[in-house]
Design a protein around this nucleic acid. Structure first.
Lengths: 290, 290
DNA sequence: CGATCGTTTGACGGTGCTCAATCACCGTGG
DNA sequence: CCACGGTGATTGAGCACCGTCAAACGATCG
């Protein structure tokens, strides 16, 4: 989907829903009180009267639609209310690099403020809903509603922390470790949203995951298979279930392919995470079984 | 310097408990008017009287000293005034993962606000100076000095944009491409600071670069050597000069195996990049020359 | 001047990228 | 209902990039 996302032609579409590429629908069906937005962002309700009276517009974004168009002006800042997005950057040769995935509570479009240009795009991976805040209103609203200001500060802080996590994800050298970290990362995020941390429903394609992790998509597929064979994961298309959390966690820790079996001696903390085995040995085990 | 920051690195050193912040010196010699801070962050001076009267404390951080200690409370938010920092995250096994490098104008410590815990550390790579803003004063100051508020919004927006650039850096599959992108990234940053974009003085070790890029430090060294042999770079320890900017840029574009073309003599203008060629084109070229 | 750390280079083996083929799953239209 | 592309996911084979181990060399500092 959305193989169309081409570089924008500098159009600075106003409030109107922009029709980028295919089915880019971004109408605005309704609004919700500020309180809802605050709760979504993790801010305390505060119960201020104004927060109930003031409403923020909602936009609906269909699966595959472009919320942030690369090259466009920074017209709005969004907060995801429901759904999932991928942030992308399209190279000159058309290659679409995935930079991040966003879930409810995440802020989108804020990085465009500094130069009034969307240097990264955002595409909905499923039907989604976002709060829309016009950039030119942002400073004013923040000043007028301290609760919003505080919530936004928190959200941005979280976003920066997440960026660090992304870097950590990609820093692993072994592709299996990268995937393991990604699964754990997504699991933690789902749990934070009140969903099951063990039964995951991946919203993105293998190719998107591969792009984010900086590996070939075939490798992602192979790594999934390896985890399945080892009894760590159960995978059915985009439905993933974590079977052996400890082993998955252990795999996460390996920074590079190594970090071998160290439990034998001088293990630092207490219990060395059960039967620790190196990434390779996992695969090796499954192979030597025959 | 920085003998304290032990790199577990390749060996599975069952490290000793990290001795973070040994010579962590952070005295506070002086203060500077808010105007200075605003200018540093890219905000417009505005010329407000209050901005001149109000002063922000400065801290000095010696090379190798820890500004942000992992696990500590979020006591302050800092803005780099001079010097360079690396942001790190130490794994349980002691491996020190580099997450980012920071230069003057960058905000440090903001990501700790969301949970009142420094999940990432920061170490000075050279003698540095930072503005220090107590976390508990942040909201108040922002409200009291709108220019600061706006400048901070800009700075955070920039920081998020930079995070995306980091991800882009690491997403390349070829280690040479990663290094090329890193050089270009650092060059752009130096230029933004008013320094030469061609003659670079790297503040960090090969190990730190390798950690950030997710490759072995030997590979970084080898890639540097390759670039030197190809006449793209001139390297003397940590002094790097960009000799052939176009070739370096061309190398930067290669996302993964696909899409690139940089015959070392073919015209270099913005090309439609239709030809595809292997990632190793550069090295291959240099090798087949003989 | 010696110790320590950072950097470089070599050799070797393995992981993962590339190129393909196959299968599963759709929505479409015959 | 089934044939028909189209997309995504999986798996295989081959090879070369790069991680690992090792050993010099160079730089810095006490």
């Amino acid at each position: 989907m959305t193989p169309d996302t081409r570089l924008a032609d500098t159009d600075s579409t106003r409030n109107e829903p922009r029709v980028t590429g295919r089915c880019a629908l971004t109408p605005m069906p309704a609004s919700r009180p500020l309180t809802d937005l605050l709760r979504l962002m993790g801010g305390e309700p505060d119960g201020s009267e104004a927060d109930h009276a003031f409403t923020v517009p909602l936009w609906q974004v269909r699966a595959g639609a472009t919320l942030l168009l690369e090259g466009a002006r920074a017209s709005h800042v969004y907060v995801v209310r429901a759904g999932t997005f991928k942030s992308i950057k399209t190279a000159e040769d058309g290659y679409e690099q995935v930079l991040a995935f966003s879930s409810p509570g995440d802020v989108l479009g804020f990085e465009a403020l500094c130069e009034d240009r969307q240097h990264t795009g955002a595409v909905a991976l499923e039907d989604s809903i976002v709060f829309a805040i016009a950039s030119r209103d942002l400073l004013l609203w923040r000043r007028q509603y301290p609760t919003l200001d505080h919530a936004l500060q928190l959200a941005l802080s979280r976003r920066l922390a997440r960026a660090g996590e992304m870097t950590e994800l990609m820093a692993a050298v072994s592709s299996e470790v990268r995937l393991a970290r990604f699964i754990m990362w997504w699991s933690a995020r789902m749990e934070a949203l009140g969903q099951s941390p063990r039964r995951l429903r991946l919203r993105m394609s293998r190719r998107d995951i591969a792009s984010l992790l900086g590996v070939a998509h075939e490798t992602v597929s192979r790594s999934f298979s390896t985890f399945v064979e080892c009894g760590v994961l159960s995978v059915a298309n985009r439905e993933v279930e974590i079977i052996d959390l400890e082993r998955l966690k252990a795999c996460t820790r390996n920074t590079r392919g190594l970090a071998d079996d160290m439990p034998y001696r001088s293990a630092v903390g207490g219990r060395p995470a059960g039967l620790r085995q190196r990434t390779r040995s996992l695969e090796a085990a499954s192979l030597t079984v025959n």
